[in-house]
Design a protein around this nucleic acid. Structure first.
Lengths: 215, 215
DNA sequence: TAGATTGTTAATCGATTAACAATC
DNA sequence: TAGATTGTTAATCGATTAACAATC
């Protein structure tokens, strides 16, 4: 029904708008113009207006944008107005770090299970949720509604578990494993490849040095 | 001296090439054509050739690319052939998770210090490195060469510490705090905004559902 | 030499910015 | 009404893909 396809670039920017609007809201700012926001965010005002207009006319000529309204609307667009039951596979440091992010819960991402292979961890609780064995995952998925799975497993096991998730109807995977998952079209994958991010940093650092006369 | 400016899009793809070439190397593949690599990586062969040619002619007509050679060369471009002394600010779950990534060390990213505000953590060691108090950071920076700082602190403290890092000559910040740092041109910042990544996932999930007849 | 595949130019596509009429 | 600022079209810029001559 929706005719216009929204570009990936726009979508990637939405959460950043949401963050800035949230900050303005905390500062009790009532309205903001694309121009003022553009200065804060260091993007062009034109881009802000174009981006927002992909989703409808949130502003008002001569006035600008109502911060609270825009914040709420972007929240809805991002799906933050509904609960997303979520599990974590891999209760290592990273898995536990993510489990402890209080902010996620605030935005509707509700942790309902944590799984690991290590029997030593079994029964240990993180934020009130007991760590279960990965072997119990298929049963858990049949008995509980899970929308999002967070994968913080080594790459081989990540691939294997991704298949189990897909077979059991999980529709979104937040993948921290250093591997590209092969998934059907109806499963959303968002990758966080930390080592690639660090390499990008390293590239920029090396490059900058070469351009600005090392030695 | 280098005339041609390399686009950000290309740079972001480099680590992924590096990862795939590393895998091929492990599988003892000696050479690969842009066409075969394009199938594996699900990008166009044309893009691969264009990307690589930004840095020089690594291939050979009629043959393709030598995997080992290309892997090494991309490694050099990414600055992985030299050591990067690195510290972590924030010894929470995320900081500890990053400290424990063995892979980083393999690529030249050498952890030389971990800092936190929590006195309870003082003296505790992660991977043989004792956690120090953040108040000791300026002194540490004056006495030790640090290239990269990893920021896993809450946003207010992150901003404050970023300034201290900059004042003391740290040239690159890997920022996990939910804030955009304001840094001079000669300081490289690479942001990892995890909550924004999760929101993108959430958007795609919601969108897919709306397009494919919920209910 | 014939076949394969790169390096590179040209064509296409998409995203960003500029400009301005519409309108609050 | 006059001023401000959006929504939106048009112009520009950049990135991707296609095509093919060069060459191993």
């Amino acid at each position: 029904m929706d005719a216009k396809e929204i570009s990936k670039a726009v979508i990637k920017r939405l959460p950043r708008y949401y963050r800035y609007l949230g900050e303005l809201l905390e500062e009790n700012v009532e309205r903001i113009s694309s121009n003022d926001l553009s200065k804060k965010m260091k993007v062009t005002a034109s881009q802000i207006r174009q981006d927002l207009n992909n989703f409808g006319g949130f502003g008002q000529q001569g006035y600008g944008y109502n911060v609270k309204y825009l914040y709420t609307e972007i929240g809805k667009i991002l799906g933050l107005d509904v609960q997303h039951p979520m599990i974590i596979l891999g209760a290592g440091n990273l898995g536990q770090a993510l489990a402890n992010y209080v902010d996620f819960e605030k935005r509707g991402f509700k942790l309902v299970g944590i799984f690991d292979v290590n029997p030593v961890l079994e029964g240990m609780a993180v934020r009130g949720i007991e760590i279960q064995m990965l072997s119990d995952l298929p049963l858990f998925l049949r008995e509980n509604l899970v929308e999002i799975a967070i994968l913080t497993l080594p790459k081989n096991r990540a691939k294997e578990m991704a298949n189990i998730l897909i077979e059991n109807g999980v529709k979104a995977i937040w993948n921290f494993a250093h591997v590209d998952l092969d998934t059907p079209d109806d499963v959303i994958v968002e990758n966080v490849h930390l080592s690639e991010s660090l390499m990008t940093l390293s590239y920029n650092l090396s490059q900058y040095r070469q351009e600005h006369v090392e030695k």
